[in-house]
Amino acid sequence: MAQVRGSCESFCPDGEAKMRVREKLLNYFELKNGQKNTPGVLVKEFTRSAADAKMPLPKEMRTEAALTKTVEYLLKDIILDTRKPYNLAYDFIFDRLRAVRREMVIQMYDARQKIRLLGPIVMFLAYSRYRLCEESIEKFDPKICNQHLQECVTGVLCSYDELDGQESSKESTIRELERRCFIECLYQVFNLGSPESLMRALTLPDYVRQDPMFKLCFGICLAFQQGNLYRVLMGFPQLPHILCAVAATKLQGIRRSLLKVFTHAYNNKQLTVPVPYLLRLLLIDSPAGLQDQCRHYNIALTVDRKAVHFNKTDFNDDAELLKPQQERFVESKLKRIYLPEVLLLKKLN
């Protein structure tokens, strides 16, 4: 099959732009200053490949430079746009990035090109997964976000494997190596304790395995696999920004497991366990947070609410996992970064 190359140098091919302006199919973020019907910057929409659709012409597809610029525009200008709630910006960016991914596939980009474009998309999805974790299902579907994140991150990893298979891979710059380590870390934390990800971690090239951040991530995953949840929980706050955010989406499951372990270990009618100790171990920052957990899993508090009665028969095994929430230790980290810089993998620490 002949390789198709796009020739469009803007965010949105002319044909689509004209059609969407004419038909008034503009997204809020594509209107000039939010005014009705005044077109601003348009970005190519995602459309499915369908049997009746013709193969796109070169002018209907963007060049690599244009795709890179599109990603940069979305993850810089749009993501910092605070006029609308973030979930709307997310929907817009998600769709437009999906169009970028589709063009990348049609144009059959090589490993290096894929890594450059997919890396920021992975970062965006990971960040959004955390940022929107408290939203209701109508506003944000975590399952779809997870699916796409998994797909994109494995896409990047496969590309890295491909580069490993080529001799030219030694020419990578330090920045590129750093990026790889970060994405490998993200994959590990996102797939915490899965046999496949652990196996992958064991067979990575040495420079990744020796990377301090990767060692930390792998240590956490290994501790999780062994059942040493203490090490997992103490490791989380040491992770940098986005990794910490991804870890936070796993936190409720780990808290539940540890509480369940405690209901067996501290199981006694007379004895109690003090709240501060539990707050520390479970990474919960207020007694109210712990009370929520206790209520949810049917764990009794003492009358003065300063201690907890653990009883293994009372523990509500059927209670659904609590929704992930924004955690203070993550928020403080995210406050300190300039988001576009991190999402575009320009600066990682």
């Binding site: 949840l229 372990v261 067996h264 199981n267």
Partner: peptide, 18 residues
Amino acid sequence: CIVANLIYEGKIKGYISH
């Protein structure tokens, strides 16, 4: 936490008094 885990897994029979 380690002792708690061992109790949970049934490797130690007993309970912890905090």
